[in-house]
Design a protein around this nucleic acid. Structure first.
Lengths: 232, 232
DNA sequence: TTCATACATTGATATTGATCAATCGGCAGT
DNA sequence: ACTGCCGATTGATCAATATCAATGTATGAA
């Protein structure tokens, strides 16, 4: 593993307070690997052998049941995924695949649990991370149950706008097909939602979105910090 | 607090491995209180002053935004709620109200965090509890995104049937209005779903449901352990 | 008991979102 | 450049769910 990767991982909230030798031991047991796009990484139901860290690229977490399929989250650098299954030593509840060429770090679950048991700072960090993940899913749930499709799309754009530091033009970080699934709708309806929002402060151009009237956009999609704010 | 309550709390997964004096200290700072039905307990957005334990009764966790409202969970004895907000010292993401007369234990969040920092066994238990909660919400999410309304209702009945130890007749543990909201539909559509399922192995009689043909019920609602099994 | 109230049910209708089908457009490989 | 393919778009239609309205039913208070 390259030193630059090492430093990036070391600076993640999850690892930054670990005892140095514990961290080294964990890294030694782990290995980084490069994957092409559209590769299946894990399948729901399988035992949680590894904790994953996305170093570069993009990973989709999804689930399928009886012919239907839906994305539950998209993980971008630098974050971990399937921490809960690793901690509980339980089967994965979601499948994962790359949606772009990606560099991932795989940490054997047993080593993670061992570090958890012997390093209080790491234990603390894991609890905070888990609580954050939990609150993230609760927010997704509220997004789905309390909003219409157009409101979900509008609020997604508002968040992009915020993340960009209120740039005039923002770009979708992945394909519309994936975005539609995350937002709980079909690609066709996502297209129509983008179309409808063009009379409410945005201008679409492929994957590029110009925000022409933020106030109008907010008026139609009614953002709510207890759903949208990633910090709260 | 009554000794019987004390023992019940002590035997919860969350508290059973705590150091005795830590547990006593936590209990001393906490207080039990009786509430009537339909009382608001907390409102989303407020600071998480307490961790709650439901000793008796029934509590609904819900969220409202711009005129719409939806239940996210119903907590029955004996379990805790809003652990994540307590741990992160962050605002509640959900509101809570009693739906039946309830006895609750309120533990000041500061004391919980302090116990967490000084009692490794308690820390371990909290992580496991949080991971379980996280996986619970993920399952709810899959339930919502991958299933139709009728399938959600059918699987809810299947789970009730399992919990009862396959009794011929099971009873809804709370009102249909609340159930409809949990399952992401209107009360009218829940009624119609129950009606439709009567040709697929059940017989409704108010809050009582007779399971006449479990195989037929499963055929229509296609249970999936990675969504329905509370242990996985 | 009676009344008032909230909940549940049922039917009619409206709305939302999904599906189906056709077309367009960009991008990779040859 | 040409070709083939995949993703996005658009329109037409269908299915699922919500809403509205009316009625029925159980429950608790006076």
């Amino acid at each position: 593993m390259r030193d630059s990767d090492r430093d990036i991982i070391r600076n993640l909230n999850l690892f930054c307070d670990m005892q140095p030798q514990r961290f080294e031991a964990l890294l030694t047991a782990a290995y980084a690997q490069q994957f092409p796009a559209h590769v299946d990484l894990i399948r729901e139901g399988e035992p949680a052998d590894f904790l994953y860290v996305v170093l570069e690229g993009c990973v989709e977490l999804f689930s399928a049941s009886h012919g239907r399929e839906s994305s539950l989250a998209i993980v971008t650098p630098v974050s971990t995924f399937i921490l809960a299954a690793t901690i509980k030593d339980a089967p994965y509840l979601m499948s994962a695949r790359t949606i772009a060429p990606s560099k991932l770090l795989l940490m054997p679950s047993g080593n993670v649990r061992e570090a958890f048991d012997h390093d209080p700072a790491f234990a603390r960090a894991i609890v905070t991370e888990l609580a954050t993940c939990y609150r993230g899913v609760v927010k997704s749930m509220k997004n789905l149950k309390l909003r219409t499709a157009i409101e979900r799309v509008g609020n997604y754009i508002v968040r992009l706008h915020d993340k960009s530091g209120h740039a005039d033009i923002v770009e979708l970080p992945f394909g519309k097909r994936n975005l539609a699934s995350i937002l709980g709708m079909t690609p066709e309806n996502l297209s129509r939602a983008f179309g409808a929002l063009q009379s409410h402060g945005i201008l679409m151009d492929g994957a590029r979105i110009e925000i022409t009237d933020r106030a109008a956009l907010e008026a139609i999609c009614k953002p709510n910090p207890l759903i949208d704010d990633p910090r709260s």
